[in-house]
Design a protein around this nucleic acid. Structure first.
Lengths: 334, 334
DNA sequence: ATGAAAGCGCTAACAT
DNA sequence: ATGTTAGCGCTTTCAT
């Protein structure tokens, strides 16, 4: 492998000049720059990442903790991951992937100076990783919103507003009894940030509009969906509207409604909180509130880079939800 | 951050002794080892990854190029990724995530010495990355099987055998006219390694058993599945058995069969080639040939690590497919 | 506008 | 069994 010294020699300059050509941190005369670039090209020179990190304390790598816990939909996770990786490349960074949800991994990559910054997904209300993250010298962004985000930057869809929006929409369309078919029980039990927030927003929206409601968690399986739908119909027989926040259960919920003879949207309106492509891949195109994973992943990178640059304070950004009406809802005749 | 020098001082030894305690590359007396470990613990010392990489030419990072592109089922991809990351951690490595459309990514991380080894997923028959990979000094393992794997190690499910196995099973159960509902058209068109091989094996299996057959690609949408099923039933009305190799289309294929009044397995038997959890998450548990993604990902890491150690030659490993009979097939009455 | 030189923190000969 | 020392390949003062 060619080193910076080889390049310098070939271009008839010093190593530091090559370094400055590469970094742009000082002005270089046009002819010099040209010779250096020429030399770099012909030698196929690439700076050694480790040497660079050692000398500059910058790795140009972002750590991404994407735990693949049970109950979370991997395809949704991947949209966030894609957003992070894509935006990271835009700002000349690579991504180191951590999938274990232990704080050991965080400390290893952070204290070992493997990464410049860290993005953490799948945050819980009282996430045990928070104290660890607060202690790191690398800036951190959470995708999600814990109880106490003090000192940490956060970004996410405003899931509370999304839950409320779903409820309010159903209320406005004339439904008086609705249900939230939510995340799998284990996700709820962990108090995964987004699950908690959707429930809270949904309840508030219903209460504000005097709409009766029930909330049921839902296993992402055919049987789980059957049980959830049956539970709703048993506990609250007058239910005519559903907010479903569970990508994998969605097809089964729809299938079971059909099986029980409930027409959508005639007998039961459905508002899905899910990525748009999921809403469009169902048996009928669903009215939905998009989860813009790629966007959010990209914003997470922007935020973390901003904090890397200056000494910006931590900040929380919640993306406003947007509802797109499709074939699974319709104004109710009175 | 504490350095190795700090630790050495605290333990009353030289830096190299600390290094050797950490690496185990020479024997250390029990008392010395204890003092060093004590110092490491109290100082919270972590070796600087860059410094280590610079001095040792080892990063303890594996590069993983994973597809985040259209047509591939991300949940299947994630199983492979999980296998890679999990096994990598077992052998004390981290994973740097590269995406397919990051064309220069391989050269960047390889020439920049960011990774010790590379695992590449979603390989095409004539993958344009092959020449690049052959030129790298880091060992590489492909998950998939290109036309000409010369010089590169490969590991994958034996998809050709899987395609054949599906066909043969249907033949043995008495079907005389069968169909393969395959990968999405764009995956076929790219000649993605696994798609090609399934088709080839399926055809061979049918031919060997004198079974008539058709092959249709299938968009992973409700409409796509409808079109695929309709095409099969139009072109080959006597079709009674289906091999489906398309995770996302699977539920829609089953739904459309039901809609057209075809009972499974009575009127149409279905053998799915997909991860077992996908086969079990359908409306009825499917007879399936498992795609053991985690296993294969782990094996990929083992292979690449083996090549890192010694100077093993490149090798190709194909995992034999196994069919598990469930509710979607049944011996045919004659 | 460019060069010289001092590290960055570690590993691995080479000593003893 | 342990210490000494020469780099690994960069970045970045400090000079000029």
């Amino acid at each position: 492998m060619a080193t910076i010294e080889d390049v310098a020699k070939a271009a008839g300059v010093s190593a530091s000049t090559v370094s400055y050509v590469l970094s742009g941190k000082r002005s270089i005369s046009a002819p010099t720059r040209r010779r250096v670039e020429q030399a770099i090209a012909t030698l196929g020179y690439r700076p050694h990442a480790g040497a660079r990190a050692l000398a500059s304390s910058r790795t140009n790598v972002i750590g991404l903790m994407a735990p693949l816990r049970s109950g979370v939909d991997v395809s949704v996770v991947m949209q966030f991951v894609t957003g992070v990786v894509t935006r990271a490349r835009d700002v000349d960074h690579d991504v180191l992937l951590l999938t274990q949800d232990d704080s050991g991994g965080l400390e290893r990559v952070a204290a070992g100076s493997m990464v410049d910054a860290i993005v953490v997904m799948d945050v819980e209300a009282d996430d045990p990783r928070l104290p660890v993250l607060r202690a790191l010298r690398q800036p951190t962004v959470l995708i999600g919103l814990p109880h106490d985000p003090a000192g940490l930057s956060c970004v996410d869809l405003d899931f509370e507003a999304a839950g409320r929006l779903g409820a309010v929409r159903l209320a406005q369309e004339g439904h008086r009894q609705v249900a939230l078919v939510g995340s799998p029980p284990e996700v709820m039990d962990r108090h995964t940030s987004y699950a908690d927030r959707v429930v809270r927003g949904f309840r508030q929206g219903c209460d504000e509009h005097g709409v009766r409601h029930v909330v049921v968690p839902c296993e992402p399986t055919p049987d789980g969906a059957r049980r959830a739908v049956d539970a709703v119909l048993a506990d609250a027989p007058g239910t005519t509207g559903l907010v479903v926040h569970n990508e994998r259960a969605l097809p089964h919920v729809l299938a079971h409604l059909a099986e029980r003879g409930h027409d959508v949207p005639g007998d039961a309106a459905v508002v899905a909180i899910c990525p748009t492509d999921v809403a469009l891949a169902q048996r009928l195109p669903l009215t939905s509130i998009d989860i813009p994973g790629e966007l959010i992943g990209g914003v997470a990178v922007d935020m973390v880079m901003a904090r890397l640059g200056g000494d910006q304070p931590a900040e929380t950004r919640l993306i406003a939800p947007e509802l797109t009406a499709r074939a699974s809802t319709a104004a109710r005749e009175v």
